[in-house]
């Protein structure tokens, strides 16, 4: 029972990180309607920017974290301005954007591996302090992950609820022509989408890397977690993304309890396939009129 409780506690922390990944991926998938594979590259770049700032430039941790998020945002925005936006203007289909995104991901990951090597880079040294909750144990880094994750996704939800421009971003995926026809600042909204998505990817990457380190190839895993959470939860509902992320974290925790963490990918893709087969609109998607589907 204690083991199960401990795994549930760990799942709650993982759900916070998975939710960050889901919100970052969902923002672009929902508003731009293309599968943003290079999201994984932004995830990797943010943490390696911290590695460079701390270990090469000798910056203190808090400054390095700021630099990591900033460079992640810069990478995301630059990818849009130099690749996606010109492609879209030339009439590229979502399929072309997906291939371009895959190309960007491979390019970025290989560049990072070339510069920093393929081995895992550790960002924090020493033994992480931990706290006891009765028989359960939680590390300081897990507390930070939990708080940062849940505060960010809840705070962002409050902003979406109150801010009209955010509602415009939400509308972009559903009715892109309408957003233009209403005179909304589409250029600014697009910039915001890529910047905010990168912030979520960067923060998720940093709180994970500070705990377990980073290697150049973890971006694909982060991308898949974010994408599966969004699709399973329902593309059109923000709390669906969080619900999908939490469900994934919980099921992965259960897999560790019953089998082994080696089966986590099986859980991730199993739940994706089951959802696509039986509820393709997502588990938490709202009821819609037939013509809206």
């Amino acid at each position: 029972m204690i083991l199960l409780s401990q795994l549930l506690l760990n799942a709650l922390v993982n759900a916070a990180i998975f939710s960050l990944l889901a919100v970052g991926f969902g923002l672009i998938y929902r508003s731009m309607r293309f599968f943003y594979i290079a999201y994984g590259a932004v995830y990797v770049i943010a943490s390696y920017a911290v590695v460079a700032a701390m270990q090469i430039s000798g910056f203190p941790l808090y400054l390095s974290i700021g630099a990591g998020v900033f460079l992640g945002v810069l990478a995301g925005v630059l990818m849009d301005r130099t690749v996606y936006l010109p492609l879209e203007r030339s009439g590229a289909t979502p399929g072309v954007l997906l291939i371009a995104s895959l190309g960007l991901y491979i390019l970025a990951v290989n560049a990072v591996a070339l510069i920093f090597g393929n081995e895992v880079k550790i960002l924090s040294r020493g033994i992480e302090p931990s706290f006891s909750l009765g028989p359960l144990v939680i590390t300081r880094m897990q507390v930070i992950q939990f708080l940062v994750g849940w505060i960010l996704v809840t705070g962002f939800w409050l902003i979406i609820r109150k801010n009209t421009l955010m509602k415009g971003i939400w509308a972009m995926g559903e009715t892109p022509n309408l957003v233009t026809a209403l005179g909304l600042p589409c250029g600014l909204m697009r910039l915001l989408v890529f910047a905010l998505s990168s912030v979520f990817a960067g923060v998720a990457s940093l709180v994970t890397a500070l705990d377990v380190g980073i290697d150049p190839h973890v971006g694909m895993h982060a991308l898949l977690i974010g994408a599966v959470a969004v699709i399973v939860g329902g593309v059109d509902v923000y709390w669906g993304w969080i619900g999908g992320a939490s469900l994934l974290a919980l099921l992965q925790g259960m897999a560790v309890w019953q089998f082994s963490s080696r089966w986590n990918d099986l859980i991730t893709f199993g739940i994706l396939i089951i959802t696509l087969l039986f509820r393709p609109q997502g588990l938490f998607s709202p009821r819609k009129r037939r013509e809206e589907r």
Partner: peptide, 28 residues
């Protein structure tokens, strides 16, 4: 924003938002 209002033939509301949210979008 210079004073031309344009109603699209199709997809001229955002079905996933409330009526009020749609109006606010129009007013932005």
């Amino acid at each position: 924003n210079s004073g031309i209002g344009y109603l699209l033939q199709n997809e001229n509301i955002v079905p996933g938002l409330t009526v009020e949210e749609n109006l606010l979008l129009g007013a932005y």
